[in-house]
């Protein structure tokens, strides 16, 4: 795979997003903002789960670490969000290394349960360490982001900024996927023993995937904090981890385009289906289950019979196909 795809993907995201930002009303712009932020988190999850096969039910804890980092640095220490963001992301990465080193020796459901326990523990600490986190009252009055003296106060200008971050994130993810490191992750997912036979340091690759995923999560968390300007432990509960995972599954695991599509769909879907009321979550469960059974490679895996695959260079699906092909 060439370098073209990631760049193209970034450009497509920017153009499509800018176009939409001109057409939509505030309410939909807000949803789009939330979807873009989720998409960054889900692209991150894709490193761990989609590429390296590490099942994580604790992704929201890393989103939360990033968000709390930004919120605390800006409100307690009065830092500029521009300084707080990278520091919070770096802090989260260190946290992920510390967590990952012991945890990633686990696999399958052990890892799933351990990460679930991690997320539950994170919520508990965030809710109870009142002196630092404000408890369940959360942290409010997080400052707005400023670009050249202009506050990103309205949904539209924030969306432009978030889109730029998403475009860069997606492009970088594409580059990593196409690189030796991305292939190493996929090799580890497919067969650890074989991977280690070819000289891949399995532990290092897993840690790298896990830390990359937490970095993306922290970026998303920081963006979330600056967008909502209020955060509380509820925003990072394990239910959100399940939602991120569902976004990836619905969109198509192992695919960046899938991650973005899944985030978009599962952000807008509950709003479109508001009329369902209490029935929405029941529907959501069945929907995810149906995708798992009938469309195991997600929305990007959907093929109209006999089309698209002919020319192996067609953009999104081709990339998924590439990642799928190495899978047994």
């Amino acid at each position: 795979m060439s370098m073209r795809f990631p760049l193209l993907l970034g450009i497509v995201i920017l153009i499509a997003g800018l176009g939409l930002s001109m057409l939509l009303t505030d309410y939909h712009l807000r949803l789009l903002n939330l979807a873009v932020i989720s998409a960054i988190a889900v692209i991150g999850l894709n490193f761990a789960f989609g590429y390296a096969g590490l099942i994580s039910l604790g992704h929201a804890a890393f989103v939360g670490t990033g968000a709390y980092g930004v919120a605390l640095l800006t409100t307690l220490l009065g830092w500029s969000p521009w300084l707080a963001l990278p520091v919070a992301v770096a802090g989260t990465a260190i946290f992920a290394v510390l967590i990952g080193l012991p945890l990633l020796r686990l696999k399958g459901h052990y890892l799933a349960l351990a990460t679930l326990g991690l997320n539950v523990s994170f919520s508990m600490v965030a809710a109870n360490w009142i002196e630092l986190t404000g408890g369940t009252n959360g942290i409010s009055r997080i400052p707005e982001l400023q670009v050249a003296g202009h506050a990103l106060a309205d949904e539209r200008s924030y969306l432009w900024f978030a889109l730029a971050v998403l475009a860069v994130s997606a492009a970088v993810a594409g580059l990593i996927h196409a690189s030796r490191h991305g292939r190493a992750m996929i090799a580890v997912r497919d067969d650890e023993t074989a991977a280690s036979m070819t000289g891949i340091d399995v532990t290092r690759v897993k840690i790298a995937a896990f830390v990359l995923s937490s970095i993306y999560a922290a970026v998303a968390g920081g963006l979330f904090a600056c967008h909502m300007r209020f955060i509380s432990p509820e925003d990072f509960s394990y239910a959100h981890s399940i939602t991120y995972l569902a976004m990836l599954i619905v969109g198509g695991e192992g695919s960046i385009v899938g991650a973005i599509l899944g985030a978009l769909l599962l952000t807008f879907l509950p709003e479109w289906l508001r009329f369902l009321g209490s029935a929405y979550l029941a529907f959501f469960g069945v929907f995810v289950l149906a995708i798992l059974v009938f469309l195991p490679s997600g929305l990007v895996g959907f093929r109209w019979p006999g089309s698209l695959r002919r020319d192996g260079r067609s953009k999104g699906p081709a990339m998924v196909a590439a990642s799928k092909e190495v899978r047994p």
């Binding site: 995972l245 569902a246 959501f284």
Partner: peptide, 23 residues
């Protein structure tokens, strides 16, 4: 299905069960 699919599948089933009971 692979183990991850089953894990996520049962999570989805759990969500459905809870909300069916709620309904």
């Amino acid at each position: 299905s692979p183990v991850v699919t089953i894990i996520i599948g049962t999570v989805a089933i759990g969500i459905t069960m809870q909300n069916a009971a709620l309904l």
